[in-house]
């Protein structure tokens, strides 16, 4: 009897969710990989809703958008894994129910409780990760040289390098080459990595965003992208298999992106369903191979859905080694962030 009542209540809940959802819209602030129709359409069809997506670049831009919006305008937020604490501090995120999320299937290193939870309450969940490391054209450079960061930006490859235009991962790579852990970076360590950045800058032909870096590598304008990785070359490798990436002996930095429900969401149940869909095995496989950029899914169960070619492009079987040899890219506090950005801009203007 109890089971029947539970089933009835459960069914009612689903109908309650699905009923009004016919006219429902979900508004999500996302990175470009979520705008792939192949990712969003199955969710829209299943729930009979429309998902409105707004791309943004930079956590500052997202915070500005949220501040300028009315409470309830946005339901879901995708954010850099190292910045979850910023939106939680600002009171923008709603708690997530751990028992409804497949966290046990995640790569353990990617659960990142220290980033996604505060005082034991989960506010976001990692959805995708990858590496900021060295992408290169294997026909034009010696792959052995790419295993040593100091050789990568040495005079030997001067003028053949593009640097990814985001200071945190690039400064993280500079720190690793100077023997400094990214988590240990402080104001004093910036003095150590400043000459490394200057050397990198002197050897670089350009400092480029995602599209420009891909274009530069694909057209032969440069042979190496410092800060590149699978997200840069995976979509190119089908046509140009010579474009590849490696993790040097000193290691590399790891990026992650998280997803959560906004505290003021007017559709919290639907927003949670969206988060659950994104971190499900099916959603993860689609997100990993988004037409905007590829990256490893946080949920390892996605491996059963990805094709052999897709797993090979993502280097699925090497993730154990890669995760052991990489560090999360620097997550500076506000003061250190200012100093890092100033150093970065000083370096670019040299």
């Amino acid at each position: 009897m109890t089971k029947r009542i539970s089933a009835l209540l459960g069914g009612t809940a689903i109908v309650a969710l699905a009923g009004p959802a016919a006219a429902q819209e979900l508004n999500a602030l996302v990175w470009c990989d979520h705008t792939d129709e192949a990712l969003i359409a199955p969710f829209e069809e299943e729930f009979g809703v429309t998902v409105n997506l707004r791309e943004y670049e930079g956590t500052g831009a997202a915070l500005a958008l949220l501040e300028q919006s009315r409470p309830g305008d946005w339901d879901v937020l995708v954010i850099d894994g190292i910045d979850v604490f910023r939106v939680v501090e600002a009171g923008l995120m709603a708690p997530l129910p751990r028992d409804e999320l497949p966290l046990d299937d995640f790569f353990p290193e990617i659960v990142m409780e220290e980033n996604n939870a505060v005082d034991g309450t989960l506010y976001a969940v990692t959805e995708k990760f990858g590496y900021n490391t060295i992408s290169y054209n294997s026909e034009n450079v010696d792959p052995e040289d790419m295993q040593d960061l100091s050789t990568v930006w040495s005079d030997e490859y001067a003028g053949r390098i593009s640097i990814y235009d985001y200071y945190l991962p690039v400064m993280g790579l500079a720190a690793l080459s100077a023997g400094i852990d990214t988590a240990a970076m402080d104001a004093a360590s910036l003095e150590t990595i400043a000459p490394v950045l200057s050397q990198m800058r002197a050897s670089a032909a350009s400092v480029a965003g995602v599209v420009a870096a891909q274009t530069a590598l694909a057209t032969g304008e440069v042979d190496i992208v410092v800060g590149g990785g699978e997200w840069l070359t995976a979509v190119l490798s089908a046509d140009q298999p010579e474009l590849t990436w490696t993790i040097p002996d000193q290691g590399a930095v790891r990026w992650t992106q998280s997803i959560g429900v906004l505290a003021d969401s007017e559709n919290p149940d639907l927003a949670l369903e969206f988060v659950k869909y994104i971190v499900s095995a099916e959603g993860q496989a689609r997100l990993a191979t988004s037409s905007c950029f590829w990256g490893m899914p946080a949920n390892s169960a996605a491996g059963d859905i990805l094709t052999e070619d897709q797993r090979a492009a993502l280097r699925w079987d090497e993730q154990g080694d890669y995760l052991a040899r990489t560090q999360l890219y620097p997550a500076p506090d506000a003061d250190l962030d200012i100093e890092m950005q100033d150093l970065w801009l000083d370096t670019l203007q040299q």
Binding site: E57, G58, T59, G60, A61, L63, A64, S162, D165, L168, A204, A205, S206, V207, A208, G209, A212, A334, D337, I338, Q341, L345, L348, Q349
Partner: peptide, 26 residues
């Protein structure tokens, strides 16, 4: 300048965008 200049030198609008992008330093 952002697309064609390759960030080899920065103009004022580019520096403004950097201030806004991550730190929201309005």
């Amino acid at each position: 300048p952002q697309i064609l200049g390759g960030n080899t030198e920065l103009t004022v609008p580019q520096v403004i965008m950097v201030q806004l992008g991550r730190r929201a330093n309005f």
